[in-house]
Structure formats: C-alpha cells, structure tokens
Amino acid sequence: MRDTADFDAFYDATSRRVLHQLYALTGDLERAGDCTQEAYARAWRHWSTVSAATSPETWVRGTAWRLASGRWRGRSRGGPKPPASPGTGSADLVAALRRLPEKQRYAIVVRHLAGAAVREIAAETGTSIATVENRLAKAHATLVRILPGDFAVLTGGHCV
C-alpha cells in the first residue's frame, strides 16, 4: 500500500520548486507545468521505488526534463512558442537560458536553481565531473555576456 501522506508531503514541499526549474529549462510555463505534473504522476505510480531514491526530487526533475525534452524535439520546426512569464526579469533570464545548448542549460539550472553539486549533476546526467564543469563554464560565459547583471543575481555573484 502506498503512503499517501508521505507522497503528499513530498509533493507540497517540492512541486513549486521543480516547476520553476522546469520553466527555466524549457522557457514555456504551460509545458513545464504539464511535464511536472506528469513526472509527479509517475512518481506516485512508482512511489515505493522513488521514495527510496537518494533524492526523490532529483528523480522527479529528471523525469520532467526528459518529458519536456521529448516534447521539444517532437515539435514542428516552426520554432518555439514565446515563453509565458510570471514577470519581466524571469522572462529575460528564461529567454537567455533558451539560447544555451540543452545540456549546458540543464547543468546551469540544476546547479544554480536547484542547488545541486557538480558531482550530483554528473551522476544525474551520467557524465563526468569534468564534463559538467565544462558545460557550466561555457553556460556561465554565455549568460554573463547576455545578462551581465541579472546572471550575477542568479548565481549569487559566484562563478560556477
């Protein structure tokens, strides 16, 4: 039997944060919401396994990102739809993030918005620490060029 209260507490504690991370990753609030909800539905269906994971939130975020990436690749070549934005500053940041290659965008968002360590990102993505560091450095350099002041706010003034 599934522990409804345990899952509900997990959902309440993490869903808003995961949604914001997916919005930053996709640039599309509606798609981020759809993928986040589907990822939580899958987590619920497999809760005994997901709840035993080192980080259930990482599991959900990774699942949501894989869903979003699949939907993104499956879209027509007409181009991405403009992001729906809760505010101007976040729209600028999301637009800048969308200019990054997918793997760099994932690394920078998970590092700075989710607060994951480089080694955690490497494990989550199945890559080496050096590869993640390289992606972060490239993403950081691009974002500093695009949003010099705004990106410093995201990273707390720190380099990757």
Rank of each mutant, 00 (worst) to 15 (best):
M1H: 11
R2Q: 12
R2K: 15
D3T: 09
A5G: 00
D8P: 02
A9W: 09
F10C: 12
Y11I: 03
D12Q: 14
S15R: 07
R17H: 14
V18E: 04
Q21S: 15
A24L: 11
D34M: 07
C35Q: 02
Q37K: 14
R42H: 09
W44S: 07
W47I: 02
S48A: 03
V50A: 04
T54D: 05
S55T: 05
P56C: 12
E57H: 04
T58E: 12
T63I: 03
T63A: 12
A64R: 10
R66V: 00
R66N: 11
S69G: 15
R71T: 02
R71G: 00
R71W: 04
R73H: 07
S76D: 09
R77N: 01
P80H: 13
P83V: 01
A84D: 04
S85D: 06
S85R: 10
T88Y: 05
T88I: 09
S90R: 14
D92Q: 15
D92I: 03
L93Q: 14
L97I: 05
R99A: 14
L100R: 08
Q104T: 01
Q104M: 07
Q104K: 03
Q104P: 00
I108A: 15
V110L: 06
R111F: 09
H112K: 04
A114K: 00
A116T: 12
A117M: 01
A117N: 05
A117C: 03
V118P: 10
R119M: 06
R119G: 02
E120V: 15
A122T: 10
A123Q: 10
G126M: 08
S128Y: 15
S128C: 12
I129K: 10
A130T: 08
N134V: 05
A137R: 13
K138Q: 07
H140M: 02
H140T: 14
A141Y: 04
T142L: 09
L143F: 01
R145I: 01
I146D: 09
P148G: 04
G149V: 03
G149R: 15
G149S: 11
D150W: 00
T155N: 02
G156V: 02
